[in-house]
Design a protein around this nucleic acid. Structure first.
Lengths: 160, 160
DNA sequence: CCTTGACCTTCCCACTATGGGAATCCCCAT
DNA sequence: ATGGGGATTCCCATAGTGGGAAGGTCAAGG
């Protein structure tokens, strides 16, 4: 099986296959005499595992852990669960942050006439205009503050 | 006002000030004889505007638009509102996506004993193990599929 | 046998925003 | 004059992913 076939069989792009190998998420693939990478059905299984984990938003680092546990028959399910729980916590933090932004922006948009006139509460708010800050829309202000930015959410954060 | 003072007054790091200038979000700052950038109170206003917009998760591109509208007395509030609404839609898409991931992962974690035994439904699911795929936890499956990845959410997606 | 096209290889670049750090220079106070 | 703090530019790194160029390979058909 060459890289294209492994890619098609796993749903992971050939580009990513090479990348995962490079960063050590996958062991170095065997090569044909001509230098082509060779994959087995077992490799494809691992790739599918990785792809599903990516679909759940897990970072490459966490996936490394999970793949390690997966291939370790001595693992304890507690270890696996911990990794999952950590990721859920990060997802929660991210969701909270985005939701706070969304709420604020939605309220501002709701307050905007959206007509031909230049008057606009959205701009007014961004201007920091209202002299008493406590009257600005804030909605769990701290959550979306720069420092509050949660730990890394991976791939899905990048526009395709 | 030099770059450090403008940074302190606006909450935007000096590094970002230079970057914003480089990418054209800010006009090129005037310089002293020695090459130091010089900022006015008006510049600081713009910087605060930008910072607040970033706090709401708006991309640099959208902020460019908003700053343009902000400084245009002929603007229509409808234009501003449209930009805001677009961003809300992207936030919604992202939130949906993350929520779907979260739900799936939470269910898997709930189903995991989390003890010393190796048996683990999380790994089992990632394996794609269950022969009948419709029994796998999915929860709005399409939403978190790669193709479903929403349009770009900016900065906050990056781990500090 | 040779061409053609599909595939593989490596290497570099781009993206989003942001931070870190080095080398060098400037300004002000002692 | 000297020292410290700040400014300048330039390069690098991040997390994943895609795009593309330049060149080698393989298989099928003429």
């Amino acid at each position: 099986m060459n890289i294209g076939q492994a890619s098609a069989a796993s749903g992971v792009s050939a580009k990513m296959l090479r990348y995962y190998e490079e960063i050590g998420l996958l062991p170095k693939a065997a090569r044909t005499g001509a230098g082509y990478r060779v994959y087995s059905a077992k490799d494809v299984n691992t790739l599918r595992f990785i792809r599903r984990a990516r679909d759940l938003g897990l970072s490459i680092e966490r996936i490394k852990l999970l793949v390690g546990l997966w291939q370790d028959r001595e693992r304890s399910s507690a270890d696996v669960k911990r990794v999952a729980i950590e990721h859920v916590a990060e997802l929660d933090a991210k969701i909270l942050e985005l939701t706070a932004m969304r709420e604020t922006l939605q309220e501002l948009a709701d307050a905007c006439h959206g007509d031909h006139r230049p008057d606009c509460p959205i701009l007014h708010d961004l201007e920091g205009g209202s002299s008493s800050p406590e009257h600005r829309f804030t909605v769990t202000k701290d959550v979306h503050r720069r420092k509050g930015a949660a730990a890394g959410l991976p791939a899905e954060c990048h526009a395709g």
